[in-house]
């Protein structure tokens, strides 16, 4: 007999300060914590795909949704992957994409838009992801410079663990003509 649900204790929902219990059933997911009166639920019909990566409090299962921002479930152990992957395969007929992030410590790379996120890649690996709905304002702050201002979107029903909040990022973007300009300037 196959198990109908699997449960994980000590899982953090969307960077919550307190952990809760995650239950995964064939119909979808539920997360329960003492901080909530009603559990947070996610029906299978909203789920587009799953990603897995090393994160702040262990490993993160990130759920990319069809119409909303992704959901973050952090606090898994590395060994949880096989059980999760086989349950999701059996019940949802979906895979889990395993992502390795850059931890090189470099500040150069390239950006790309992936779904509802802006990804900064270093050496062909993602280094971090910015939810586009947290970008409050953008402006050209100098020659080849773009500034992104953030507001922390409080779409999570639970208190956040984030004490240090990213409010601005500035990016240097090389211009399409600047290569020639630079070459001329160097002569």
């Amino acid at each position: 007999m196959a198990t109908k649900t699997i449960q994980y204790d000590n899982i953090y929902l969307n960077l919550s300060s307190q952990p809760g219990k995650l239950r995964i059933a064939p119909s979808g997911l539920g997360w329960k914590s003492s901080a909530l009166t009603e559990p947070f639920t996610l029906p299978l019909s909203e789920i587009r795909r799953f990603c897995w990566s090393h994160f702040a409090r262990g490993y993160e299962l990130k759920i990319i949704l069809k119409n909303r921002s992704p959901v973050s479930l952090d606090g898994f152990a590395q060994e949880d992957f096989d059980g999760l992957a086989s349950f999701i395969k059996q019940n949802y007929d979906m895979g889990i994409e395993q992502k390795e992030f850059s931890i090189k410590g470099w500040n150069w790379g390239d950006t790309e838009f992936l779904g509802s996120e802006l990804v900064f890649n270093v050496n062909s690996r993602p280094a971090f992801e910015i939810p586009i709905n947290s970008v409050n304002n953008t402006n050209l702050s100098g020659k080849n410079e773009v500034a992104l201002e953030f507001s922390n979107v409080k779409d999570s029903p639970v208190p956040s663990a984030q004490a240090d909040e990213l409010v601005e990022m500035r990016l240097y973007i090389p211009g399409t003509t600047s290569k020639e300009d630079v070459a001329e300037g160097e002569d």
Binding site: F120, A163, D164, E165, V167, E168, M169, Y172
Partner: peptide, 13 residues
Amino acid sequence: PNAQFIRSFTFRS
């Protein structure tokens, strides 16, 4: 030459 650079991050606490 096409690399983009992070020029700054500002954090608030």
